[in-house]
Nucleic acid binder design. Structure first.
Lengths: 169, 169
DNA sequence: ATGCTTGCAAACGCTTTGCAGTATG
DNA sequence: CATACTGCAAAGCGTTTGCAAGCAT
């Protein structure tokens, strides 16, 4: 690793915990790993590998996309990061640091915004299904699609005005 | 189209409805399209493009995978077919003819089996969330992962015997 | 000093697309 | 007969991997 790391990177994340967690897993703490995790913690939003990569590059220009992917795999395996999918198009993987309350995501088909939603119904569904089928649930991938309040309103107005087919499917 | 079509293909699907539906959409009925839809109806299971392709090739050896993809896109757009994802690994798209009752899927991490589950909780969640957020839900992608009754039992037995780490996590 | 990590670039797997010939309505 | 559709092959896209050099411990 030759490119200079911006000062301040060192204190960005590692509360010594990461160091330790990695060590237990037989892995090493590197500036890249610390940085990537810190980016995920700072931007509490939802980033894909490329988003993480470009944000992280502000601090660490030499960072390679492959390293981002590999680091995400490690952090995921260690349970520090979760991988999610948004919207119907699941081509792209998104990542999110763990620690927040259980939540799911809803993507607005109008503005693309992703909002987080909380509901106990998914768990409830799993509990109920488990009871009468014996299936043991480990994970649920849930992503909602629709229109946020604003876009929904805008659309209903458009529909009223144009009347010719402003609506798209 | 030169390869011979197996006799019987003609009657396989087109209840004249497909023909009509396609026509309305400004499209044409081709043996490929009829076949692909019929495959999806016959195998009520869950197929990816390649699965559809190889099944369909029994009847139509010349069928090209690209045609399968294009046809699926058309049928999806016409609302005759739904595209789904299974398990956490969403690399691959699966397709399913519409018409069945609303259901979701649970993939067994042990044997790979995909079972269909019905639950009103997803709808309920959407209804509730919609009420207090104004979000208008259009679609929900839900896929469960876990262990089917059999695999779950097998795993718990293994865990009891080995005791050294038969569990994989 | 040991070997886990990184950067680079090539490979991968699934899906999409450009093009010229073909068949449908 | 116009043109939507197909087969073929190549491109696309996000993600993964082999390899040699480079760090962390």
């Amino acid at each position: 690793m030759s490119p200079k790391v911006t000062p301040g990177l060192a204190q960005m994340q590692p509360p010594a915990t990461l160091q330790e967690a990695l060590h237990v897993a037989g892995r090493r703490l590197t500036p890249q790993r610390a940085l990537i995790l810190s980016v995920l913690h700072q931007v509490d939003g939802h980033l894909d590998a490329e988003g993480i990569h470009s944000l992280a590059q502000h601090h660490y220009p030499g960072l390679n996309l492959a390293t981002v992917y590999r680091t995400l795999a490690v952090l995921k395996e260690m349970g520090l990061v979760e991988q999610r999918y948004f919207a119907r198009d699941h081509k792209r993987e998104y990542y999110e640091a763990v620690g927040k309350r259980e939540h799911y995501h809803a993507t607005c088909l109008g503005c693309g915004k992703v909002i987080e939603v909380e509901t106990p119904r998914i768990r409830q569904a799993q509990r109920e299904l488990s009871e009468n089928s014996g299936f043991v649930f480990v994970h649920a991938c849930v992503c909602f699609e629709g229109y946020c309040a604003e876009c929904a309103q805008a659309r209903s107005q458009d529909a009223g005005e144009g009347e010719a087919g402003a609506d798209g499917a």
